[in-house]
Design a protein around this nucleic acid. Structure first.
Lengths: 279, 279
DNA sequence: CCAAAAGTGTTTTTCGTACACCCATGG
DNA sequence: CCATGGGTGTACGAAAAACACTTTTGG
């Protein structure tokens, strides 16, 4: 029973697990079995152990909750209101994860009684301050969508540009001009064309693309903090290039505008969002 | 002597206090009096109490260290390496503060033996991982500089555009085209012209500007999390405008690119950074 | 041969950038 | 009257945005 000279806040992680299912953005929620907020929906999460980093804690919880492994996670914020948990002083750090559609059944099936997917546009009142956390996660997701190739994480390893564009349109709830989108995406060199085609519909087959992994392709799978996903290059000088630990760890290969938006070409990214007036 | 069922990490805050002195960006460092890293330089900071938020803890420490009050602070990152403190598992949250030049003497004078200003471009090896934290703080500062009017916090309440521009040039270490800078700044409506002029030099007097506080002007002084500093408006829709708690609290009135950035007009901001070739 | 999605270029507009001269003051 | 910084507008080029038709397949 560890004791300390001064009281300490508890530290937890909460995970927002995004996926796309039936053309809708969804997140995983659990039905709380205990008070407080018993039988409310809540984000999966748990306490951080003293021998693990925050990201490791998030991944451990994710594996417990979904029985998947090899997550791509991203720290996006922290929540520290004194009274956010009525039982104790709890500081929580938010991570979001992206699960490709083909893993949905595995993820939600692990503990079907208590775990299910919910449409992002129809989230009920959640336990604690979890609605705020969900909102923050979504804002981070949208921003990262503009500045990296994370949209590919919703898809199979190889995907068509139409599928890729569809991820943007679903998450940003905007139609995009196809020609400008393709021009912009390909100019960023975040994707590379494979030799494979996707046939199937009664229409012309589409070329399959994959994310242009920075160094080697394996690292895209092994590392769980989005590091090998390409981040848009920017004209950084000197200090910008220093390794920035901590919060931005997940995007360490580029500048995180992110939160701001770092100084990446945000306007360029926005060009994809304009509705397709033509045709 | 509080005790818990499971061991808990300690939670601390560390403050990077920026100011401009003699045309140089400086930060406040303390000389550690105790092991580990005894007599190394380090960031001011301390433990978070269970009855205070992270921001309150940062402000409390700031007041203790500088004997100033009413700080503008911004949470910019967290640092959670398991071994970052050899004594214990310590998670720290970084805040930066900006102090106007006219408060420098007060700030550093409170505990002159151990506290002093150091040129940002000449920071020695610091205790713990504090060099990483300083780098992250600087990146956040640069980014916020592009997306809000925080540059004004280095100055008096009213200031000339030349002084304002000078803040950018010092922090970004780049010369800026005067005409483009003024055009860009004024187009953002982050500043408003006062009726006052600054005379003095043997040249034409300069118009004084102040930050265009969002609602009322007092809140710019009262609130310590940069909330009333104007943040560049962006074309957000629906969900973007939801209140985003937690990490981005300091900029809640706008979109935080920032970190991440958000989707503000970063390119526009960058235009100010181009050297002034002319004249 | 027809429906349905894949794929592809050009024009227009907007925005970033370079650039030079007159103004008001103090000494 | 002159040295010093304050203050202003325009023209050019690059990038974003609008926009429509041909191609390839399956049924």
């Amino acid at each position: 029973m560890p004791s300390y000279k001064y009281a300490r806040p508890a530290v937890t992680v909460d995970n927002i697990i995004f996926t796309i299912q039936e053309e809708r953005l969804k997140i995983l929620l659990i039905n709380r079995g205990i008070e407080p907020f018993k039988s409310s929906l809540a984000l999966p999460g748990g306490f951080v152990r003293v021998d693990e980093s925050l990201a490791d804690a998030a991944k451990r919880e994710l594996t417990e909750e979904t029985s998947l492994s090899d997550f791509h996670i991203k720290m996006f914020g922290m929540f520290d209101d004194i009274n956010r948990d009525p039982r104790d002083r709890v500081i929580t750090i938010g991570f979001y994860a992206i699960i490709p559609s083909h893993d949905i059944d595995i993820a939600a099936g692990s503990d079907a009684e208590n775990v299910d997917w919910y449409d992002f546009n129809d989230i009920p009142a959640l336990a604690f301050d979890h609605n705020s956390i969900v909102t923050a996660a979504f804002n981070a997701l949208k921003q990262d969508l503009e500045n990296s190739s994370i949209a590919a994480l919703f898809l199979d390893d190889e995907f068509t540009l139409a599928e890729f564009q569809n991820v943007y349109e679903i998450i940003l709830t905007k139609k995009v001009d196809k020609r400008n989108f393709r021009k912009s995406i390909l100019a960023d060199n975040l994707l590379i064309k494979t030799d494979n085609m996707k046939s199937g519909g009664q229409h012309r087959p589409a070329a399959l693309y994959k994310i242009a992994s920075g160094e080697n392709e394996k690292s895209a799978v092994d590392n769980n903090n989005f590091p090998s996903l390409n981040v848009k290059k920017t004209n950084n000088d000197s200090t910008d290039e220093l390794y920035q630990k901590g919060y931005n760890k997940g995007l360490e290969k580029g500048y995180v505008s992110g939160f701001k938006n770092a100084l990446s070409k945000t306007n360029k990214a926005l060009s994809r969002l304009k509705p397709d007036i033509g045709s």
